[in-house]
């Protein structure tokens, strides 16, 4: 069972989390949904395309102009409230590492806090627990928020990701976050070079075997671009290949830009793996 804020998911089907950026400078959409109405139109679109979760972010993950908590709250909080009002049953996630931001957005109706920076703010787990929200526990290899890896290496990157994310999960559990509301994420490209991200993809089944539900965030990332020699706008095929590998291994949540394509790949792979019946099969069975 997975409990994402107000939503309890009793089946074991995979979930698609759509990225909704309220940022002027994110790497893929480059500010296309920075304006509130544009971001809301994006929510409408991804819900129509089959997203189970929207992940709203107000700060670009990479380097860029400083965005303090006040500005992040200004970008995200009221927007979360607007989405909650329009879509009462939609699971709303907010991509933030700051506990003060998490507190405000949970009051506005957010169900999930996606801490892409691996527990940098030690108070975040307490805020998530206080709101009975869900938490995404990521691995960043110890990087500070909004920094890139430089000559970072691991004896075993998957072991490091498992150790860090499960320790974070246990810390969240101890703080009072419900066990069924904790998800782990190896965090492709965060504190990882392309070889690391490829290995994490290849061995993501080891993370699934921990028993914690696994989220993967693969969408259009640099490890896809470097592997195929493709710029940001031409990485869909590579992203979907990585998605299929993770789906076959049993990763549960997929954080993506392209919802419809991901939905099809994940559902198809899940069905090939024998975990999801076909939508509607009658050929040869009538």
């Amino acid at each position: 069972m997975l409990k994402l804020g107000h939503r309890v998911l009793v089946d074991e089907l995979p979930l698609v989390m759509a990225i909704v950026n309220r940022t002027p400078d994110s790497f893929y959409d480059r500010g296309a949904t920075f304006a509130e109405d544009a971001a809301f139109a994006r929510v409408e679109q991804v819900v129509d395309e089959g997203a189970d979760i929207v992940d709203i972010g107000g700060v670009r993950a990479g380097y860029g102009p400083e965005v303090d908590a006040t500005e992040e709250i200004r970008r995200v909080a009221s927007f979360v409230g607007r989405v909650r009002t329009a879509y009462p049953s939609l699971v709303i996630s907010v991509d933030t590492w700051r506990s003060e931001v998490a507190d405000v957005v949970c009051r506005e109706g957010a169900d999930v806090v996606n801490d892409a920076w691996g527990g940098h703010d030690p108070g975040l787990v307490d805020v998530v627990a206080a709101h009975d929200a869900a938490l995404i526990c990521t691995h960043t290899g110890g990087l500070r928020p909004r920094t890139d890896p430089h000559r970072q290496e691991y004896a075993d990157v998957v072991a490091a990701a498992i150790t860090a994310t499960t320790a974070y999960a246990e810390r969240a559990l101890a703080a009072g976050v419900a066990k069924e509301s904790i998800v782990i994420d190896p965090a492709h490209d965060f504190g990882k070079n392309t070889f690391h991200s490829l290995e994490v993809t290849r061995r993501v089944g080891e993370m699934v075997e921990t028993g914690w539900p696994v989220l993967v965030s693969l969408s259009n990332k640099d490890f896809v671009g470097e592997t195929l020699g493709r710029p940001a706008g031409e990485r869909l095929s590579g992203t979907l290949a990585a998605t299929a590998v993770c789906a076959l291994a049993g990763a549960r949540i997929y954080r993506v830009h392209q919802v419809r394509e991901t939905r099809d790949v994940v559902d198809m792979t899940w069905s090939i793996a024998g975990r999801r019946p076909p939508l509607r099969a009658i050929r040869g069975l009538a």
Binding site: R276, P277, P278, L279, R280, A281, I282, L285
Partner: peptide, 9 residues
């Protein structure tokens, strides 16, 4: 064993 998510029958 031939169950679908949406039952065709």
């Amino acid at each position: 064993e031939y169950r679908s998510l949406q039952d065709p029958v």
